Simulated scan of single mutants.
Amino acid sequence: MSNLERDPVELLCPPEAAHGPAVEVLDYREVPLGGPRAMPVRRTLPQRGRTTIGAWCFADHYGPDDVAATGGMVVPPHPHTGLQTVSWLFEGEIEHRDSTGSHELVRPGGVNLMTAGRGISHSEVSTPATSRLHGVQLWVALPDASRYVGPFFEHADTTPFQLGDATVRVFVGELAGGELGEAADAPSAPVTVFSPLLGAQVDLPAGGTVDVPLDPGFEHGVLVDAGPAHVEVGGADAATEVAWSQLAYLGTGHDRVRLRADADPVRVVLLGGVPFGEELVMWWNFIGRSHDEVVEFRRRWQSDVIDRNDPDGPFGTVAGYDGRPLPAPDLPTVRLKPRR
């Protein structure tokens, strides 16, 4: 998914401390996702005070969205560098095309992971069969040693398994803990990552409770899709209520998290990873390490793709998309200043 803000903020993302309150609740801001009717998305990462959770650096939550009212998702070809995109749906269907030649449908239960590396472009459009669209779009920052890898695309179906009262699907990485019994062969996803990560969907029926094992070396986020969810980690005096679309941040040092549903069913997306110890520069759809590097990414996109000077350049072309690619917004008039 593209960041379609007309004036995207350029962020310096310093390595962050992975400690603080046992459960820190982060609210979202609403961002229109382009088009004349502008499908809204709710963004919880990045934001002031918390720009990454592990290598997870971007989280958009959208829907349930009435496609007839909003026009659904129509994101023309746009570029990425230095990251992976993870598309995960609860309802609907999205057609993905990219400059590696990949053409795939994103459906509930299947994960689409696209590695941009040194440069890729792609489009995302909800299909005519989709009446409701509902899911999350996530980005993963690539560590410096891997951020110039050649671009590639992967799709994998996931297997649900029971954990206590919950149904769990792991779509990135693997679930910690050796107490999963018959589910021992299910809590991992066969997609490529470049740092230790976890991404999972956890569904609880009304009145249900589950203790999810965590890797104590990870920090975690609990993004609530349906709720509220009650989140509790060791040492807390009581559970913290986390409302719909909010993100609960858990620092390192926890070996499990208890999730509880009261009167309503709960669905959360659980994200985790080793604290990301590198400074990032994020602007529009690019992740780099300096202001000048991001300026050069933009220049190449505008020159090679928008101005058609080199269709075989690092961002390539998206075959099969009927329309023009997205031009980049104007750069800020001043050099990057840290936001901490």
Rank of each mutant, 00 (worst) to 15 (best):
T192G: 10
P196E: 15
P196G: 11
L197R: 12
L198H: 04
G199W: 01
G199R: 11
V202S: 07
D203L: 05
D203M: 09
L204Q: 03
P205Q: 04
P205S: 03
P205W: 14
G208N: 05
V210Q: 08
P213M: 09
G217A: 13
G221C: 03
V222A: 02
V222E: 02
L223F: 01
D225W: 00
P228A: 05
A229F: 01
H230R: 15
V231G: 03
E232T: 10
E232N: 09
V233R: 08
A236V: 02
A236Q: 15
A236S: 13
A239L: 00
W244I: 08
S245D: 09
Q246R: 13
Q246M: 08
Q246I: 03
L250K: 09
L250E: 06
G251S: 10
T252Q: 09
G253M: 06
D255A: 15
L259I: 06
D262S: 07
D262T: 12
A263S: 09
A263M: 05
P265L: 08
P265G: 00
V268T: 10
V268W: 02
V269G: 02
L270K: 01
L270R: 06
V274C: 05
F276Y: 14
F276L: 07
G277I: 11
G277E: 14
E279P: 10
W284C: 05
W284Q: 06
H291K: 08
D292L: 13
E296R: 14
F297N: 05
R298S: 14
R300M: 12
W301C: 02
S303Q: 14
D307P: 07
R308T: 13
R308Y: 04
D310E: 10
P311C: 04
D312F: 08
D312W: 12
A319V: 09
Y321H: 13
R324Q: 13
P325C: 04
